[in-house]
Amino acid sequence: MRSFIVLGLMLISFAAQANDWEDRQTFSGATPTKTLRILSSTDTSLFKSIIEGFLVENPDVSVEYLVTGTSDIDNIFRKSPNDFDLVISSAMDLQLKLVNDGFADKIDQINHPQWAQWRHSLFAFTIEPAAIVINKDAFAGYDIPQTRQDLIQALRARPDFFTNKLGTYDVRQSGLGFLFATQDARTSETYWRLMEVMGALDTRLYCCSGEMIDDLVSGKIAVAYNVLSSYANARKEIQDKIEVILPADFPTTMMRTILMSKTSENTVTGTEFIKHLLDIQSNSLAPAESLLPALVSAPSQQTISLEPALLTYLDALKRRNFITEWERAVIQ
């Protein structure tokens, strides 16, 4: 009995520490005197080289890189904006709302294209399409779907095979999943039909792109919808097992963004970090050190633009409606 209590306490304390962060790493410069705390939704592996490059130029800094989901980032940062200097997230709508609500610092000295920034406070540094990623084995001998319509037909053709073998974001948990879903729904009615088909085949719901890719590789699922192509492409060792398809009908594309907390005490270092990041990412010859897609110029029409309309689906009524409808389609 006592050992159970001890075990329980250990679990609780572990949960309290680990539950907050998917990953937590500290990178130190040669002679660190100050710490830059970055709250991010991007996996550490994708950001490691950028941080290390920054620390070579700024040896007096150490960077604490804290990774969690996009919705968590919003909750945590709103609760304690003083604890973090920079916020990186792929959920553009949540980031834009943070800026709109006055959480971000205005950095006038950064010169960034108008379409890739908002209020000189929110800066986009990647352009990443959402992809359909498939397990190649599952489609051996079949046509590989190129559009959402193709995918619907492929699923309808082999319902027994695909039952329980599909994956997509749980939009209730993932801010990015919600952003992709709402933008898909805004663009085309096909989204709802696809969701109904996937719901009927008992789609698995995920919090993050990483886990979906893991399950694809292991063969647990055959198709993942609205996965970040950058995550799939970043893992070189699995390229023979999966195929990343950018839907030909409309590739919903998001921009990863960074903002600096208004209450940050390291504004100079924070600004330097943002400049460093934008310098690397704006260079169209994406340097080998960056695993993140570069910020290429001329965004396509399907790129979600940084505008106040992103607040629309964050509205309590709209969000409730959307999730009700989504649950009706996917969970059934």
Binding site: R119, R186, P308, T312
Partner: peptide, 30 residues
């Protein structure tokens, strides 16, 4: 279920901040 355009039309060159509130009989809805 207000349209995307409701807030999209408020996009400006200077990226002005946008706020809104919806009340039902003086009680905040969202």
């Amino acid at each position: 279920d207000f349209p995307y355009a409701s807030l999209s039309m408020l996009d400006t060159l200077e990226d002005d901040r946008v706020f809104y509130a919806i009340y039902q009989d003086d009680e905040l809805l969202s």
